[in-house]
């Protein structure tokens, strides 16, 4: 168990590793069905979130729909 230093939505964050993207969402209390995940500028499709492991220095973006025109 080693912590990973990553960037999530622009902020540095330490998360317990090893961790998949799905683990990260659980760690953050987010439902995978309600967010879209981008890892190092590449979209990761929902079924693959559990297959992809986070690496030191990764940049993750978690987005959803908000009110807008």
């Amino acid at each position: 168990m080693t912590d990973l230093q990553i960037t999530v939505n622009g902020d540095p964050r330490r998360v317990p590793g090893p961790a998949s993207l799905l683990d990260l969402l659980a760690h953050l209390g987010l439902d995978a069905r309600s967010v879209v995940v981008e890892l190092n500028r590449e979209i990761v499709r929902r079924p693959r979130l559990g297959d992809i492991s986070l690496a030191e220095g990764d940049t993750v973006e978690l987005v959803h729909f908000v009110g807008g025109g």
Binding site: L28, V36, L62, V63, H64, F65, V66, G67
Partner: peptide, 17 residues
């Protein structure tokens, strides 16, 4: 709807859906 970062500091913040 617009696409924006999830607000991680206030995870109670709900998306428009």
């Amino acid at each position: 709807v617009a696409v924006r970062r999830v607000d991680l500091d206030r995870t109670k913040e709900e998306g428009v859906l």
